[in-house]
């Protein structure tokens, strides 16, 4: 439609404006829940399959190819779950704050829905990192929990996720929930590095460097490969769950629109 209009107009200036407009429309095409919903639906199976395949590959490398650690024996193999989960937990908080901020600034509903959809996945990875960390700690350090800087800051990150989800759950109006969550996420994301460094410093002040993962021997290439494969698998898993969750959120919030009603009728 736009192309036809611009072809009909003779003035090159108008043409340019129309071209710019049509480009802008392309850029924001999928910012509307109505167009994003089917796109997300098409993408989810791909990410699910990629996650499954990468997870199998990563687990195989982790359990069968990577060598046994000289100091820790086979107990270290939980690293293939633990480290990627910890990476994802921190990364997802930043992504969540980014989309929440975009939603706050540009007032785009879909961005805020994405932020809401990311929070539970991020919290799950944070919990998984803590859980596997304590499972790893028992055989290697001899205790389920130490007040190590990394463990403590990961625990605080879990609290931050809980705060975000609790705030959004307490507000009935979805648009207010979006904006309030965005303000909290932005304040939180500024605080995350401050908290991390203060905890690191607190730890060195009180404990001295008693247990540190930095002192671990340099990693074999296969170990690194296993970890990277698992990280990619977690990445794909996050995309799959976040996209399907955002689809549910879209249906939940837009149920009164015509296309949503049709979608629900078709599905049921």
């Amino acid at each position: 439609m736009k192309v036809e209009l611009s072809a009909l107009t003779t003035s090159p200036q108008v043409k340019q404006v129309n071209n710019a407009a049509s480009e802008r429309i392309h850029w924001f095409w999928f910012a509307s829940p109505q167009t994003f919903y089917p796109l997300a639906g098409r993408m989810v199976p791909w990410f699910v399959w990629l996650a499954v395949l990468l997870c199998i590959a990563g687990t195989y490398v982790g359990f069968f190819i990577a060598p046994t650690d000289a100091q820790q024996g086979d107990a270290y193999r939980i690293i293939f779950l633990h480290v990627p989960a910890a990476w994802m937990s921190m990364f997802l908080y930043v992504v969540m704050a980014f989309w929440a901020g975009v939603g706050l600034v540009f007032n785009t509903r879909l961005s805020s829905m994405l932020a809401t959809a990311i929070a539970p996945t991020g919290a799950i990875f944070t919990f998984l990192a803590l859980w596997t960390g304590s499972l790893w700690g028992k055989p290697t350090w001899g205790t389920w929990w130490v007040w190590d800087a990394r463990l403590t800051s990961e625990l605080i990150l879990l609290f931050l996720y809980f705060g975000f989800m609790a705030l959004q759950a307490a507000i009935d109006d979805p648009r207010r929930a979006d904006r309030a969550g965005a303000i909290l996420a932005l304040v939180g994301v500024i605080n995350v590095p401050i908290i991390y460094f203060s905890v690191v410093w607190w730890n060195t002040l009180h404990q001295g460097a008693s247990i540190s993962m930095k002192s671990a021997p340099t990693m074999a290439m296969t170990m690194l490969l296993g970890m990277l494969l698992m990280a990619l698998a977690f990445w794909m898993y996050s995309l799959a769950t976040i996209l399907s969750r955002v689809r549910s959120i879209i249906l939940e919030r837009e149920w009164h629109t015509q296309w949503c009603k049709e979608e629900i009728r078709r599905a049921s």
Binding site: I156, F159, L160, F162, G163, A166, L167, A170, L184, V187, G188, N191, I194, I195, S198, V199, W201, W202
Partner: peptide
């Protein structure tokens, strides 16, 4: 709820 939101952010001050 405000305790849940604010206490993690208070941690640097405590430390």
């Amino acid at each position: 709820l405000s305790a849940l939101l604010v206490l993690p952010l208070f941690i640097p001050v405590l430390i």
